[in-house]
């Protein structure tokens, strides 16, 4: 499963939200993560996001494997942080080179939580928004239509290219070629017979799609109409209001340091 193919086919209130609102919420959440450092605030956000994600109907197994992709980096940060930050007075562990203090541990935890909150926000968006709605939302938010269409086609073809790459690999090993070998450099070199046909396939496919689009009148009219349009609903307005309240509130709480451990 690629990151761009995470949509869960369900019909939940979160699925029905306008993609523009969901994209905006994810962007605000990301920006907020750069600002917030309070662990309690971040943890609260994390919990709210987990509940929202589970309400999209995604299986715990699938979600945990997605979260682990990011979670491993968060874990590495927590483990490596004491090597670079030895400040603080409350020592939890002292192995000379590796000294963990309560203060540095909390800072590393804060950073890990920021990563997890940021990722969860985008997971929520990708689990509940189809690729076409995602792109439609971006276009409505101001992305040029040409760029939106290119992005949409690119996303749609990612699974196809992965499948093609697998087929190319099968074809080469069937001719006695060893694709997998030890060592990253050798493996990269051995992958050339797989990459070239895949790349050529991608070029030929894009040429075909381009010819097919212009043959069907793409670009003939400067102003295009839409078969399916998206409109804001009551739930979208409620989410916008929620963002308008929680984002400034979080910033104020962070600045005033009202909640602290």
């Amino acid at each position: 499963m690629s990151l761009m193919d995470m949509y869960v086919h369900r019909d939940t209130p979160i699925h029905r939200l306008d993609p523009r609102v969901k994209i905006t919420a994810a962007v605000f959440l990301t920006a907020l993560c750069f600002f917030l450092s309070n662990i309690l605030l971040l943890f609260t956000l994390f919990l709210i996001l987990q509940l929202s994600i589970l309400s999209t109907g995604v299986s715990i197994r699938r979600y945990s494997s997605s979260l682990w992709l990011v979670g491993r980096f968060a874990l590495i940060f927590v483990i490596l942080w004491p090597f670079f930050d030895k400040t603080g007075e409350t020592v939890l562990l002292d192995l000379s080179i590796y000294r963990i203090t309560l203060e540095s541990f909390l800072r590393s935890l804060s950073l890990a939580l920021r990563i997890l909150v940021m990722a969860s926000g985008w997971f929520l968006l990708l689990f509940s928004t189809t690729q076409s709605n995602f792109v439609r939302g971006l276009v409505k938010l101001g992305m040029p239509y040409d760029l939106g269409l290119s992005l949409s086609i690119a996303l749609r073809y990612i699974p196809h290219f992965i499948e093609t790459m697998d087929q190319v690999k099968d074809a080469q090993v069937s001719r006695g070629y060893e694709v997998d070998s030890r060592g990253p450099l050798k493996r990269a070199k051995n992958f050339i017979p797989v990459l070239i046909p895949t790349f050529v396939f991608a070029l030929r496919t894009s040429e075909g799609i381009s010819a097919s689009l212009v043959s069907r009148g793409y670009g003939a009219s400067p102003k295009r109409t839409y078969y399916r349009d998206i409109r804001l609903g009551v739930a979208d307005a409620a989410l916008i209001a929620f963002i308008c309240v929680t984002v400034p509130a979080s910033i104020i709480l962070e600045l005033l340091n009202v909640i602290s451990i």
Binding site: D170, A171, S174, R175, P193, I196, P197, V200, F201
Partner: peptide
Amino acid sequence: GYLFQNPDHQIF
């Protein structure tokens, strides 16, 4: 020996 259906999957 395996001849795949699509020749473009092997030529490089």
